[in-house]
Design a protein around this nucleic acid. Structure first.
Length: 479
RNA sequence: GUCCCCAUCGUCUAGUCGGCCUAGGACACCAGCCUUUCACGUUGGUAACAGGGGUUCGAAUCCCCUUGGGGAUGCCA
């Protein structure tokens, strides 16, 4: 049977790159096996709802190249795909559990629960609900209910049947003692379900076969399994993915840098770079290849090659990977991608001229946004060399000899281009007596005003004779 | 506090039935080469099986303990 998997974020803001990775694994799993990927919004927490978050999530996912078969925008047979639109469904299932004696109303106040937790901590006991409302007499319950007392519904954890086992597809068998598992709240005072109930009900109703999610869910999986059992449903397979980590190895979070997919996009990362990078966090193809397109990932991906240890999100390597993907782009594609990052002065240039500048600069781009810096030397001929050391280099007698020789040599030339620049430099070497660094560095500084840049002949070609002469003249006159 | 997960170079990782591992690749770093220049490219180098016990002819690989890190412990997801 073709698998059905889902990505179920809560719309509380942006798409976290950890979420992107989880979603990507679901996507690759589904696509590689000819299955379906479903998008579902888990908006059961009213207080955390953020305006526009759903649209934002969808936009980021779309940007990354992840497509869904069913979801809020594409619809599907088993919708609605937004949990706040499924309240009645959850209510029914909670009632069913209560009627069967698998769940019970709990009237404990927040203060009561806090007090209980503190006591348990003090006694070095596990902090979990002690089940006081579980022991309420039926009469007491109806009395409180009739009095309109606010309540939640908790599921029962079974303590008499031994340990709970889960068969995690990436970690193997994991065991939990019932004494450690809480009688989890499944329906809140406001009538909304909690994640635990809603995700189990939806996963079943939406016929999810494989649940691929972050490792933070591992400890609550026994509760989910118990719910499946209470309902008499067959549970899906569970895969708990290792976490993405900050450089200090804590769970990847804001505070220590960007974590929003859109931030990476805005900063000039290619979707191909980001996707390739997160795909390799916790998964590898088994050989030494590292650069993959989305199609290649689909072809190569396998859950059996997913690891168990968390991975640090290393910006340095992400940058390198992004650079590799930039290199893979054709000049036409790159020009289009670069458009948002172009300075005004560049946009004003003839397209052909601009394309030439990009062509000679592109290999050093780590981020698309680096283009502004790389183009600087072409756009700003009024700039001044500020670094004292570089300025000193320009002013030496040796450099001036180079400049004089260059001007003399070029004077008789019709034009200066990439082809004849080498000959000119050879002649300049002879006339000035300078060679190697002593020859090229002063020339580079004079013409581009900076010490790093594309090959000088290529720059000179783009500038043309007139501008080169002008710049060298300026350097010669520098005080 | 309690429970669970994890543990190979600084980082991402290969190592999937223990021998082919004097532990391989990549990023980063360093050096050489290339280009009469920086960069690009290229070649090479530094660098790891957390520690201790077992099991075995043989362990990075299996078991136990210790240590370290992380996660969960919410009427958040």
């Amino acid at each position: 049977m073709a698998p059905r998997v889902r990505f179920a974020p809560s719309p509380t803001g942006f798409l976290h790159v950890g979420g992107l990775r989880t979603c990507l694994f679901n996507f690759l799993f589904a696509r590689s096996l000819g299955g379906k990927l479903i998008l579902r919004f888990e908006d059961t927490d009213q207080s955390r709802k953020v305006e526009g978050a759903e649209e934002n999530l969808i936009r980021s996912l779309e940007w990354a190249g992840i497509t869904f078969d069913e979801g809020p925008t594409q619809g599907g047979e088993l919708g609605p795909y937004v949990q706040s639109e499924r309240l009645e469904l959850y209510r029914q299932h909670v009632d069913q559990l209560v009627d069967a004696g698998h769940a019970y109303p709990c009237f404990c106040s927040e203060e009561e629960l806090t007090e209980m937790r503190e006591q348990q901590l003090k006694r070095k006991q596990p902090t979990r609900y002690d089940g006081r409302c579980r022991r309420l007499q039926p009469g007491e319950v109806t009395e409180k209910l009739d009095a309109g007392m606010p309540y939640v519904v908790r599921m029962k954890i079974i303590h008499s049947k031994g340990d709970y086992y889960i068969d995690d597809q990436v970690r193997g068998q994991v065991r939990f003692a019932p004494s450690q598992i809480d009688d989890q709240v499944i329906l809140k005072t406001d009538g909304f379900p909690t994640y635990h109930l809603a995700s189990v009900v939806d996963d079943h109703l939406m016929q999810i076969t494989d649940v691929i999610r972050g490792e933070e869910w591992l400890p609550s999986t026994p509760k989910h399994l118990q719910l499946y059992e209470y309902f008499g449903w067959e549970p899906p397979k569970f895969y708990h993915l290792p976490l993405l980590l900050n450089p200090d190895r804590s769970k990847l979070s804001k505070r220590q840098g960007d974590v929003a997919t859109e931030d990476f996009r805005d900063k000039g990362y290619l979707k191909e770079g980001l996707v390739n990078f997160v795909a390799l966090l916790g998964w590898n193809p088994g050989d030494e290849r590292e650069i993959f397109s989305m199609d290649e990932l689909v072809k190569e991906f396998s859950m059996s090659r997913v690891g168990k240890a968390g991975s640090v999100f290393d910006l340095q390597k992400l940058g390198w990977m992004n650079q590799q993907h930039i290199k893979l782009k054709s000049l036409e594609e790159l020009m289009e991608l670069l458009a948002p990052y172009l300075p005004e002065a560049a946009k004003a240039l003839p397209a052909e001229q601009l394309a030439k500048m990009v062509e000679v600069s592109r290999d050093s781009l780590v981020l698309l946004s680096d283009i502004a810096d790389r183009l600087e030397l072409f756009l700003n001929d009024q700039a001044q060399v500020k670094d004292p050391a570089l300025l000193a280099t320009i002013k030496t007698e040796e450099s001036k000899a180079v400049y004089r020789a260059f001007l003399e040599e070029v004077a008789s030339l019709e034009q200066l281009n990439a082809e004849n620049f080498g000959q000119v430099m050879k002649a300049v070497q002879k006339a000035s007596g300078q060679k190697g660094k002593a020859l090229w560095v002063p020339m580079r500084l004079a013409i581009t005003l900076v010490e790093h840049g594309p090959e000088l002949p290529l720059v000179a070609d783009i500038f043309g004779k007139e501008r080169c002469v002008h710049m060298v003249q300026r350097a010669l006159e520098a005080q």
